[in-house]
């Protein structure tokens, strides 16, 4: 078989292979099941069948939903779930719907509805990532979609803050449940990663890694240490390059920032030190001289005595 799978995705950032939930899900699932993928970070939802990434192209087939793509992988004999019992497969389905019901609205809220996050972070990020004319259109579209979702999920709530509370409280309860369900295990069904782990990772990782200006829900996730460890473990094991590169970049960035900060605080440090030194010396010497602690004896007399002799001698010689 010389097929090649091509996957168009949103590009990655913050140490993740992709910032989008669905793209991330497929990428992680493909890693778990060993699918050789060729990844194109297009960032362009315009040239897709239904206006959504990820899109998988394989020969004449073009698929664009997570469900279809995983089913397609399974048909090609790539799966991460071969060791699961039917009961565990049922659990995967159940948890998938729970995450979609509880955490997805919260993610949408954090990303697109929360004003601070949207204005300071999300909107600029997407405007930069999207190609030129589209960047004026898509962020606004996604924002409208998210707002629409909030309105239709809570039709009786008029206040946006009430909706925020309800959405966050659902998501927090769900995170706590996941945390207790995971316990101290490595993955949700024992030592091997499955599609459930891919799903849960794809929901949690963006929330954990994105440097959000308003980290309300993020803080709750950070408090669930086993979930944080779970996300980090998958990142480091399956995307070591991206992860390390980001860590390195972040370290460099922080070093540069620290240097820049200290420079900013004292812009002409060397010159000032030198001037201060000179000033101090001059002042001390001046004080010492003026009060007479140090006396400079003049040897001018002897010097003055000398030349008259010469002069005299010269005079006498002339004479």
């Amino acid at each position: 078989m010389n097929e090649s799978f091509q996957l168009d995705v949103w590009k990655g950032d913050w140490g993740l292979p992709s910032v989008d939930l669905k793209c991330l899900n497929i990428l992680v699932y493909a890693k778990f099941s060993g699918v050789p993928l060729k990844i194109n970070p297009t960032n362009n939802p315009f040239r897709t069948p239904n206006g959504a990434l990820p899109v998988l192209r394989c020969g004449s087939e073009t698929l664009d939903s997570v469900k279809d793509i995983t089913a397609f992988f399974r048909k090609k004999n790539y799966t991460a779930d071969f060791s699961l019992t039917p009961k565990q497969c049922a659990e995967v389905v159940a948890y998938d719907t729970m995450l979609k019901e509880k955490i997805y609205p919260a993610l949408q809220y954090v990303w697109w509805v929360d004003v601070k996050n949207y204005n300071e972070f999300i909107q600029p990020w997407y405007a930069k990532a999207l190609p030129f004319p589209l960047n004026f259109f898509y962020p606004g579209k996604f924002e409208r979609q998210a707002r629409n979702m909030m309105e239709s999920l809570y039709p009786t709530e008029g206040e946006i803050s009430a909706i925020e509370n309800a959405v966050y409280s659902e998501a927090q309860k769900c995170l706590t449940l996941l945390s207790t369900r995971l316990g101290e295990r490595e993955y949700f069904f024992g030592p091997h990663p499955t599609s459930l782990d891919a799903i849960i990772y794809s929901y949690l990782a963006p929330l954990l890694k994105a440097p959000l200006p308003n980290p309300a829900l993020q803080n709750h996730l950070k408090a669930c240490t086993n979930l944080v460890k779970f996300v980090t473990r998958i990142s480091q094991k399956y995307f070591p390059d991206i992860c390390q590169e980001y860590e390195r970049k972040k370290a460099e960035e922080s070093v540069r920032k620290m240097r820049r900060d200290s420079e900013n605080e004292f812009p002409h440090k060397k010159r000032n030190q030198f001037l201060a030194g000179v000033f101090a010396t001059v002042a001390m010497v001046g004080y010492a001289l003026s009060t007479g602690i140090v006396e400079v004896t003049r040897n001018d007399d002897r010097m003055l005595e000398g030349p008259p002799d010469y002069m005299l001698e010269d005079h006498t010689r002339d004479e």
Binding site: E91, A94, M98, E101, L177, L178, T180
Partner: peptide, 11 residues
């Protein structure tokens, strides 16, 4: 089991 139950209720 409690977490599983919540998941099935969601389903």
């Amino acid at each position: 089991d409690k977490a599983d139950m919540r998941a099935y209720i969601s389903l």
